[in-house]
């Protein structure tokens, strides 16, 4: 089922349009800096790309994290079950028979795989374009020291991995919502809504007490990989929180879908 899911995505025009769009987003910072060397402000690490092309990958990842990635997660996870229900394929998968537990887990795994591919794709485009435009070099850290190019590359890969893992919770929420409805757009919007509300709450100091439990709270912690030495605590907290969200909502999805009457 998992491999069929990936093949389906591969043969879908949409997948490649998204890849194209993401490549455009990843190229944006480099192109802007290249065209107007005086540009400033912008997303995390943006200014630093001029000094070192490696930062382009980080900027690109930071750029997709708050909007594009939750949007993609919402789209893929929201339609995971609901999309099959509205296409009428869900009942044919179930009588094939694909077990209900297997179906949910395979869908989730396929969503995460596609998100991972998207993040890696963006990272590669960033690395490539940044390197071509501004060259590589030892990376200055947020703590003021520098790390070797090889180590820097490793940390960039690490931050990509962290960002992928950061979507695990949201994807589980999306799959859960997707088991509740036969409307894929509905499930997608609800999932993205969840991500946005979480980010808004996280920015309001009045509700600071709940900040550590918000899904999006640890999303930006990947920048702690660029301290020297690496500041692990926020990263580990973020991973733990995501694991809790993922397990909770995947469990809920399995329970709900396992007992659901499939009439669509």
């Amino acid at each position: 089922m998992y491999r069929v899911e990936l093949s389906k995505a591969f043969f879908r025009l949409r997948t490649w349009l998204f890849a194209l769009g993401l490549a455009g987003v990843a190229l944006l910072p480099v192109v802007i800096l290249w065209l107007s060397p005086g540009a400033g402000g912008g997303p995390p690490f943006f200014d630093l790309i001029r000094t070192n092309g490696l930062f382009a990958a980080l900027t690109a990842i930071g750029l997709i994290l708050p909007f594009f990635l939750p949007l993609g997660t919402g789209l893929l996870s929201g339609e995971s079950i609901a999309g099959e229900a509205s296409a009428g394929t869900l009942r044919y998968l179930l009588v094939r028979p694909v077990g209900r537990v297997r179906l949910v887990l395979a869908k989730y795994a396929a969503v995460m795989t596609q998100l991972a591919a998207a993040v890696v794709w963006v990272m590669l485009i960033g690395l490539l374009s940044g390197g071509l435009a501004f060259g590589y070099g030892p990376l200055p850290t947020l703590s003021g020291s520098t790390v070797e190019t090889g180590t820097a590359l490793l940390r960039i890969v690490g931050s990509a991995a962290y960002v992928i893992a950061a979507m695990a919770g949201l994807a589980a929420i999306g799959v859960f919502i997707s088991t509740l409805t036969a409307s894929a757009p509905g499930a997608t919007v609800a999932t993205v809504f969840f991500a946005i509300v979480s980010q808004i709450l996280d920015s309001l100091s009045g509700v600071r007490a709940i900040h550590p439990y918000l899904l999006s709270h640890g999303w930006l912690a990947f920048s702690d990989l660029f301290r020297s030495p690496v500041e692990w605590s926020n990263i580990l907290d973020g991973l733990a929180l995501d694991a809790v969200y993922a397990l909770l909502f995947l469990g809920a999805a399995l329970v709900v879908f396992g007992r659901k009457d499939v009439v669509s």
Partner: peptide, 8 residues
């Protein structure tokens, strides 16, 4: 649907 385990 009942026979095919789709609804319970």
């Amino acid at each position: 649907r009942m026979a095919l385990h789709l609804i319970f």
